[in-house]
């Protein structure tokens, strides 16, 4: 693992990690279990996320981090327990799934942009076909968010013509165009070259400042320290430890967390 790439500027106007979090519950997971065949990937997960909270999930590879956040928008199905997103329980009811998916945005490690569509079309597709937004309006919204991630000039290009960092920012803009209330990030910077990581993290920080509810699987500890109000450490499909970032990094309680942190921070 490399050194954390972002060092947070001390003079940021808002100290995000001190930002207020509402009492309203955005995501409630209780007693959730998941198996892949006979393999028990997620064990008794209990987790509550309040609106406006920014949570970083870390843990060794294969510990089930991706599976956990993919359960939140039902890209994976859980077999036991309860997941309630924005008041809607995830069951096999397709209506609920569609409702949750249109409320929850997701950003993937490998961007997953649609290569046959332009950047603008990537961003307007879901608003037009899912939200039934008129095309012109959808394009205005898309341009607004593309400006926000600082690449409006690429709107008419195809994803293959953009750098990795630019593609990931487009992916973020594409999710935002659906006006989600919750954003999930699955290792959004792991496939990027070091010099591009910062531009993506900056975009995410900006989102955090605006009060977006975020769950990020990431190993960027600098980001976690500056943005998160809770860090969750997972190992072998379980939540091993969770704490405020300052305590989490200074004072890890469990041995596994200590071991993991010493490995990831490269000491």
């Amino acid at each position: 693992m490399s050194e954390p790439v972002v060092e947070m500027p001390v003079d940021r106007k808002i100290d995000i990690s001190q930002m207020k979090v509402s009492d309203e519950i955005a995501i409630q997971i209780t007693g959730m279990n998941k198996w892949f065949g006979s393999f028990h990937v997620l064990r008794d997960i209990d987790m509550t996320v309040n609106r406006g909270e920014r949570i970083v999930i870390c843990g060794p590879s294969g510990s089930g981090k991706s599976t956990l956040i993919r359960c939140i928008n039902r890209l994976e199905e859980h077999q036991a327990g309860q997941i309630i997103v924005d008041g809607t329980e995830l069951t096999s009811d397709l209506k609920n799934i569609d409702k949750v998916r249109s409320e929850v945005g997701m950003v993937f490690q490998h961007f997953n942009l649609f290569p046959h569509l332009t950047i603008l079309e990537n961003c307007t597709l879901a608003p037009i076909w899912v939200r039934k937004t008129p095309k012109k309006e959808a394009e205005e919204i898309a341009m607004h968010f593309l400006e926000k991630v600082k690449i409006p000039e690429q709107a008419l290009k195809y994803p293959g013509q953009l750098s990795g960092g630019q593609q990931q920012r487009v992916a973020i803009a594409r999710s935002l165009c659906m006006r989600p209330r919750i954003m999930l990030f699955d290792e959004p910077t792991s496939a990027l070259d070091p010099e591009m990581i910062k531009e993506v993290l900056d975009t995410m920080i900006q989102l955090a400042e605006e009060g977006m509810t975020m769950i990020c699987v990431t190993h960027e500890m600098g980001f976690a320290q500056a943005v998160a109000n809770r860090v969750i450490f997972m190992d072998q499909g379980q939540i091993v430890e969770q704490n405020r970032p300052t305590e989490f990094f200074k004072n890890p309680k469990s041995e596994r967390t200590k071991l993991f942190l010493s490995q990831i921070l490269g000491h």
Binding site: L75, N112, L125
Partner: peptide, 27 residues
């Protein structure tokens, strides 16, 4: 087609037929 294309379509809330028509089949 990589699995990611299906997942991105799902995550954006496109249903099966829309995903097929707009994302999967063209590619």
């Amino acid at each position: 087609l990589p699995r990611g294309q299906y997942e991105a379509a799902d995550a954006l809330g496109l249903d099966y037929w829309k995903a097929q028509r707009l994302i999967i089949m063209p590619q």
